[in-house]
């Protein structure tokens, strides 16, 4: 039973990364009509940012948790202003191709300087050690990742669904021209939205740095799983992305315990099943 709980925890942690990343993808897709293939590369940049802050500037994990998402988010906004904005009005697939190119550039540059092996990033001292919960041993850092991701996801949900800014954002997703006519600066909002989505990805990167090593390709395979998560959940609702992300992480964890051979593929198999039963995704609307 210990092993089962341990795998469930690993599943929840992966699920929190799926949730943070698919949430960002959904928000970006809503505003920019772009599936951001560079999401995995920017997640990786978040982790590297934390690594540089610690080893270059001596700023610890807690600083990285704030600085990395902001810094990578700003980098994302620069990308949006200089490259992505030219795609307005073109087929959505060009956005996929452009961001795929951006991902190749970012990952290639990091691979040149850091090879493919992982760099270690220590768990911050405040979160080291573990707790004995009676039925299982809980490493504190892992518990922290799950709780903190959940809080961030809910905060994002609140921001988009319950605040005035979020209302503008949702309105601009539905009809940007009309919102612009009301005097709201939609292009700036698009840039900020992209920055927000990227910031979430970078935050996931910082969270994962102490668990998975910091590697140039750490986001490359992850983003494909997240795509499958997005197909399963649909990009229609924020809460849908979060719940699907966590749920699939748990399913993956369970698979690792009961049938480890399929743990790499279970999310894709589920995607196939969902497509066969409900092609629009669990929360999605017909497109």
């Amino acid at each position: 039973m210990q092993a089962l709980y341990a795998q469930l925890l690993v599943g929840l942690i992966n699920g929190s990364f799926y949730a943070l990343l698919s949430l960002g993808l959904a928000v970006i897709f809503g505003m920019l009509n772009i599936i951001n293939f560079a999401h995995g590369a920017l997640y990786m940049m978040g982790a590297f940012c934390a690594y540089f802050l610690l080893n270059g500037l001596g700023l610890n994990y807690w600083y990285a948790l704030v600085i990395a998402p902001v810094a990578v988010g700003i980098f994302g906004m620069v990308l949006e202003r200089t490259l992505l904005k030219w795609l307005a009005g073109l087929d959505h697939l060009y956005g996929l191709l452009l961001t795929f190119g951006i991902a190749l550039i970012i990952q290639g540059v990091f691979q040149n300087y850091f090879g493919s092996s992982g760099l270690p990033y220590a768990i911050p001292p405040q979160l080291q050690g573990g707790m004995n919960l009676g039925f299982m041993f809980l490493p504190i850092y892992r518990g922290w990742v799950v709780v903190f991701s959940l809080v961030v996801c809910l905060a994002t949900w609140y921001l988009i669904e319950r605040t005035r800014l979020g209302a503008y954002l949702r309105a601009a997703t539905e009809n940007p021209n009309l919102v612009r006519a009301f005097g709201i600066n939609v292009p700036r909002m698009i840039t900020l939205t992209y920055g927000l989505g990227i910031g979430l990805a970078a935050l996931a990167g910082v969270l994962s740095a102490p668990i998975n090593q910091v590697r140039p390709l750490m986001g490359a395979d992850l983003i494909i799983v997240v795509f499958a998560v997005v197909v399963i959940g649909g990009m229609g609702s924020i809460m849908g992305s979060v719940i699907t992300g966590f749920a699939l992480g748990v399913v993956e964890g369970l698979t690792k315990y009961f049938y480890p051979e399929a743990s790499n593929t279970v999310v894709f198999v589920l995607m196939v099943l969902v497509l066969l039963v409900k092609p629009t995704g669990l929360t999605g609307r017909a497109t």
């Binding site: 799983v225 795509f227 197909v231 497509l275 497109t287």
Partner: peptide, 21 residues
């Protein structure tokens, strides 16, 4: 048979996920 159920961007993501499978 599986992937043509969706179009455009989703089709691309589905084929990518299937090839990863």
């Amino acid at each position: 048979w599986i992937s043509i159920r969706r179009q455009g961007i989703y089709f691309a993501m589905i084929t990518l996920a299937l090839s990863q499978l």
